[in-house]
Each structure stands twice: as C-alpha cells, then as structure tokens.
C-alpha cells in the first residue's frame, strides 16, 4: 500500500505537476496562435518571437525593480513587471501591424503570403531581441522557490518519496486560469469580444453589421500580445529565458493549436494539455514508479523510458499527425480555410 502511494507521489512529482504547468504555458501560447488564425486568418510564425519579446521586457523591468529594491515578497517580482511586458509587446505588434501586415489586408493577399511575411517579421524580431539581451540563458524568478519542499513532504507524510511544489508551477496554473477566465469573459460577454467572434465566424456578415474590421484586428493584436507575454513569462519563470528556446516552442504551440482545432479557443487549451501530458509522460523515466509497483526487492534494468527527452518534439509531432489523419479539423472543430 505504501509502495503504491510512493509510486503515485513520484508520478505526481515528475509527471503530473510539471506537465500541468507546461500544459498551461502551451495553452496560453496556443490561444494566441489560434486567435490570430481565427481573426487574421494566417499561421503566425513570429509568435515565438513575440513571446520572447514580451518576456524580455518583463525580464528587464524585473531587473530594474530589483535594483530599486521593489519586490513582491514571496512572489516573483516578474508579476509586477508583467504589465510592462504586455505594454511592450503590444507596442511591438501594433507597430508591425501598421507597418507590415496592414498593407496585405488592404490588397487582400492570400493567407500563405501572410505566413511568409510573418517569417520576415520573425527574422527581424529575432535580431532585435538578440541585440537587446543577447543569447544567454537567464533566470529571473525570485521570491520563495518552493511551496512544498521534497524534504518537508517526506517528514509530513512519512513516505520515502518526496513531492516538491514550486511557486512558479502553482503561479503558472493560477495565472493561466485567471487569464483564460478573463479571455472567455471578454470573448463571450463584452460587445468587442462578440464582434471579434462574429468577425472570425463570417467576415462579410460582420462587415455588413457595421463591425469595424480595423478595430477588431487591433484588439486581437492587443489580446495576442498580452497572451504571448503571459505565456512567455510563465515559461521563463518556470524554466529560464533563452531566446532560442522560445523559437523552438513554436512547434509544440502550433501542434497544440492544430490538435485542438485551429481557430477554436477551447481547442487550444485542450490541445496544450494533450501535447504537454504526452510529451512529459512519454519522455519520463518510469524506473522509480515501476520499482515501487513491482515485487519487493526487484528493480528494472533500464530507465523504463519510452523515448529520450531529446525526442520530445517527436511526440508533439506524432500526436499532430495522428490527429490530422483521423480528425483533420482537430479535437474541437476548428475552421478550415
């Protein structure tokens, strides 16, 4: 019985908690991709860099606050800096929209043209971010590191397996729930949100009803900038900030958005968790869990790991392919343009 509890604790500690945090980060990232897809109708390759840009502003402002001695006590200072990051990212995406994307909307360019344009935007943001902060790995989480420490948990429960709960993990979940609640309230209850959904569903009909498309687009970019900054900051707090990693996040984020159904916000959230849980479960070495569950005194020879962690991209990819083959519009019916 104790062994089963130990196995459960190990599984929670190494799979359920990290995967929930990662899933929440992916979900918020995928929400940004899916909103752009729904309203502006293209896959935004610059989304990873937008996340990195917002996070970079948060990181710089956090440093500034720390040097002034401002802190949030046990919570990371980055939370105070988050609004500034959102402002920075909003300014950036509104500027790119004015200078770059607006022209292609006016000439009614094909969606794939916009994808290529977003590639150019990605290159430029990439250069700008590296010019400002370089390419180094940076940690900017401060405050209390743990809510439950592995040692305390062992003493508390008497189990031999420890369970650690980091502040950033809980924070990720809480902030993610708040963000998603706010977003859905905005999309479903406010006039602006409703006009956005109307525009996404049927552009012509929305135009006939007197919805101003430029306003819808502007608000979409603002929402996306906020989502990207929140996702990027949470990821950076949980792990670390490295511009290159943010570019690599593009694949799992796109996979989440597509698995859930492009254009569907609920789908993006579901997709994020599906991808995160599969990635973490498949690349986790189950040795500990199996040892607890197996007969007394026996332990497996290998790590009992299905795939090495270096193949985590392969997991998002495999799920993507399976969903595309069997349910091409995603789990929650997305749009297909």
């Amino acid at each position: 019985m104790v062994d089963i509890l130990n196995a459960l604790v190990a599984f929670t500690n190494f799979v359920i908690i990290p995967a929930s945090a990662y899933g929440a980060q992916l979900a918020i990232g995928a929400l940004g991709v899916t909103l752009i897809y729904g309203i502006l109708r293209f896959s935004n390759f610059a989304h990873g860099e937008t996340m990195a840009f917002g996070t970079m502003v948060v990181l710089l402002v956090t440093g500034l606050f720390q040097s002034w001695g401002i802190s949030l006590g046990p919570l990371p200072t980055a939370l105070l800096a988050l609004p500034f990051g959102i402002l920075g990212a909003s300014a950036l995406v509104l500027f790119t929209d004015r200078t770059v994307y607006k022209f292609y909307r006016r000439v009614k360019a094909a969606p794939v043209m916009l994808v290529i344009v977003s590639m150019g935007v990605m290159f430029m943001m990439n250069g700008i971010i590296r010019m400002i902060v370089g390419t180094d790995d940076r940690r900017f989480a401060d405050g209390e590191r743990f809510i439950i420490r592995a040692r305390d948990f062992k003493e508390m429960t008497g189990l031999s397996e420890g369970l650690a709960l980091r502040t950033t993990q809980v924070l990720t979940i809480v902030v993610a729930i708040a963000t998603v609640a706010l977003l859905f309230w905005f999309l479903n209850k406010t006039r602006t949100g409703k006009s956005m959904r109307a525009y996404s569903d049927n552009e012509d009909l929305a135009l006939l009803s007197g919805i101003n498309p430029e306003r819808v687009v502007m608000i979409t970019w603002l929402v996306v900038a906020a989502l990207a900054t929140v996702a990027g900051t949470l990821y950076g707090l949980d792990k670390s900030f490295k511009p290159f990693v943010y570019m690599q996040l593009l694949l799992p984020i796109f996979a989440s958005a597509i698995v859930g159904g492009l254009g569907s916000p609920i789908g993006a959230i579901a997709g994020g968790f599906v991808i995160a849980f599969s990635e973490v479960t498949i690349t986790y070495a189950f040795k500990k869990v199996v040892t607890y569950l197996g007969p007394e005194g026996w332990r497996p020879d290998g790590l009992v790991q299905l795939l090495s962690t270096d193949y985590k991209f392969a997991v998002s990819f495999a799920i993507l392919i399976i969903v595309l083959l069997f349910k091409p519009t995603g789990l929650f019916k997305g749009k297909s343009v």
Binding site: F254, A255, F313, L320
Partner: peptide, 14 residues
C-alpha cells in the same frame, strides 16, 4: 497548406 507547413517543421526538428 498550413498543415503541411507545420508537418514539415516537425519532421525537420525530428
């Protein structure tokens, strides 16, 4: 077409 893009992005990483 977008799916092909993401699929090739994935296969490249793999």
């Amino acid at each position: 077409s977008d799916y092909l893009a993401i699929a090739t992005l994935g296969i490249g990483e793999i």
